[in-house]
Design a protein around this nucleic acid. Structure first.
Lengths: 153, 153
DNA sequence: TCACATTTAATTGTTCGCAATTGAATGTGC
DNA sequence: GCACATTCAATTGCGAACAATTAAATGTGA
């Protein structure tokens, strides 16, 4: 005979939900990143876009979206703000007029050097060895990919 | 002499960032939850608030915020939407007029039964044993708590 | 008691995140 | 060559998320 808070409720308990763990960890990361990224004049999603562009430049919006799992509804205004900050340039492709290519400006390239300090600070804040973090990251990525596989039916 | 994409850039590479793993996993979870929660008429953050309330009712906004790491700027409008959906009632405390107490309505209580199907579906989607998920969850929570400790200086 | 700090929600403004729609460009089948 | 579907970015609308501010209630010290 179950009382309130019985074992049957365990799956609904907040502390038992991996999803909430991930959700709240993402916010915690965001709060740690905030003061670091303020110095670069970037928000966290903007920083992610810059990470993509620092790896490869002159790519359509679609490509950025595939890497970050974001769509044009998110990226279009974000990229316009990066353009207003003179970090990227948006130009419609001449080969395929449907595409908008995103290229770094000299300032956008230059920001990469300043950004190198960020991962170090995050590593320090996580108070964890690199190998532990890599192992966790690989597990989380594997989980994410299984979840994304379910979405595509 | 480093070329482009040298080893010095490794920390800035998107795929090496645990933070992006967490960020993208959170979004993947959200997308899996979406169709399940649509049946309950809830968004994911609203679902989290309901989880808190199903554990304990009649609590001030502050308490909910502490459990979910959210502030009143997020919760006040969210709770107003839950009230508009007749799932909670907001009443100012008579003992301390600064506080607004959040109580479940009968419909709010009743929704708990429908919600029991959700964690099962998520478990299936994650395609992972319970023990593996619990282990990951504990690691992620530990990381989150270390990050949050840094924020409080 | 009365000035003062603290606590608590609410509000405002900016930025994400996504669903749904629009509209232009491109590709395809017949 | 032409109707048709597909692709891609942009737009609109809604719901978070948070910083900063406001305002009311409460607690505290002299």
């Amino acid at each position: 005979m179950p009382r309130k808070q019985s074992a049957a409720d365990a799956p609904l308990r907040l502390d038992n939900q991996i999803c909430f763990a991930v959700y709240s960890a993402a916010h915690a990361f965001n709060r740690v990143y905030k003061p670091l990224l303020d110095r670069l004049g970037l928000t966290y999603p903007q920083y992610l876009v810059m990470l993509v562009l620092w790896e490869r430049d002159d790519v359509p919006v679609k490509t950025i979206g595939e890497k970050l799992f974001l769509d044009s509804g998110t990226l279009t205004p974000l990229l316009k703000r990066l353009e207003a900050a003179h970090l990227v340039k948006r130009t419609r492709s001449s080969e395929d007029e449907r595409q908008v290519l995103i290229a770094l400006t000299p300032q956008g390239h230059a920001l990469k050097d300043k950004a190198r300090a960020v991962p170090q600070s995050i590593l320090a804040a996580s108070d964890c060895s690199v190998s532990e973090l890599v192992a966790m990251k690989d597990e989380i990525v594997a989980l994410r990919d299984r979840l994304n596989a379910v979405i595509g039916e």
